[in-house]
């Protein structure tokens, strides 16, 4: 194809997106669109899969059967969400194995929030309330994104996600209304998860490299800073309601803006964790790669069994 033809195809493509038309797998698309989507969607899938690890840590120690079935269902949903997203990403021409390879070698990233440890039961509450809360704010606009398979996967994810946040808040509420030790445990979890949750919404707008193009392709509808403000404004009153204190001395209602002002985020910490130096980066990858390698004989056996069954069936036909 000549450069001119590509230019005209690209123009036509951008116009389709501007008209809110969806792009489907077999449609022509610019290489950059394909690559950007593979990167973002596979990162999203990896985050769901790695995100099972911090919570899986507490399934056997949940304090009641009610809490245990809820946590199990939530972690199972995360596995499901990872699978929806992996299969949607495969429609762009990358194989599942390539994506796993990228995750396991560290070439692909996942949300850095999962590199923090879950040291008490209250962390299950804080993760559901704050981490899933921030994730929902990030994900709802993606239900309208331009790539059809991604948008459809996100609709399913968002529908299922709201129970995740509610079960987390219920855990926090119960602890906050419990004994002084239980309340301290809830406050401690909030103290540890608050700032990483704010970081989860991404670097500030002035340093975010992907924003402009992503807005055009509807991979992003609002900037990181706007999403973060939305998250803070909706979460602070929830903390007030259950008598917990947001660990930010600079947090103050700004009458004029109709929003909360908040303190400086420690971006050095964020970049340290992104670069692999968070408290749990190594353990998370070790657990993930280990599970994949230990499962290899199972995958091979299942394939061998399937082939044997198929051969037997063919023999009977003859």
């Amino acid at each position: 194809m000549s450069e001119e033809q590509i230019k005209s195809l690209e123009k036509h493509f951008e116009e389709r997106i501007a008209r809110d038309e969806k792009i489907e797998p077999k449609d022509w698309m610019p290489e950059k669109y394909r690559k950007t989507h593979i990167r973002q969607m596979s990162q999203h899938a990896h985050s769901e899969i790695v995100g099972m690890l911090p919570e899986g840590n507490w399934i056997t120690r949940a304090p009641s059967l009610r809490r245990k079935v809820a946590l199990l269902a939530k972690v199972q949903d995360e596995a499901g969400h990872g699978l929806y997203l992996y299969s949607a990403t495969e429609t762009l021409g990358i194989s599942r194995d390539e994506m796993y390879e990228q995750l396991h070698t560290g070439k692909a990233k996942y949300s850095s929030i999962f590199n923090y440890p879950t040291i008490t039961w209250a962390d299950m509450g804080a993760i559901g309330w704050l981490v899933d809360g921030a994730a929902i704010i990030n994900q709802v606009p993606l239900c309208n994104t331009s790539y059809g398979p991604y948008a459809r996967a996100m609709i399913r994810v968002c529908k299922e996600e709201s129970f995740h946040q509610r079960q987390g808040f219920e855990i926090m509420m119960k602890l906050a209304n419990g004994t002084p030790e239980q309340k301290d445990m809830a406050q401690d979890a909030l103290n540890r998860w608050w700032w990483p949750s704010l970081m989860m919404l991404g670097p500030t707008d002035d340093v975010s490299v992907h924003t402009e193009q992503s807005m055009k392709w509807k991979l992003k509808r609002k900037s990181n800073d706007d999403l973060r403000q939305q998250f803070i404004d909706q979460t602070v009153p929830q903390a007030d309601l259950i008598g917990l204190t947001i660990p930010d001395p600079d947090l103050k209602w700004n009458e004029e803006r109709g929003s909360y002002d908040f303190g400086e985020i420690d971006w050095d910490e964020f970049w340290q964790v992104v670069k692999g130096h968070g408290p749990m980066n190594k353990q998370r990858m070790k657990a993930r790669v280990g599970a994949w390698e230990r499962g290899e004989w199972v995958r091979d056996a299942a394939m061998a069994h399937a082939e044997k069954k198929q051969a037997r069936k063919e023999k009977q036909v003859v």
Binding site: Q76, E90, R152, A302, A306, K309
Partner: peptide, 17 residues
């Protein structure tokens, strides 16, 4: 959507989950 499975029986079971 789609998923990976060794054969059709496993595909049905995985699809359920």
């Amino acid at each position: 959507g789609s998923l990976h499975a060794a054969d059709s029986d496993m595909a049905l079971e995985n699809a359920r989950d």
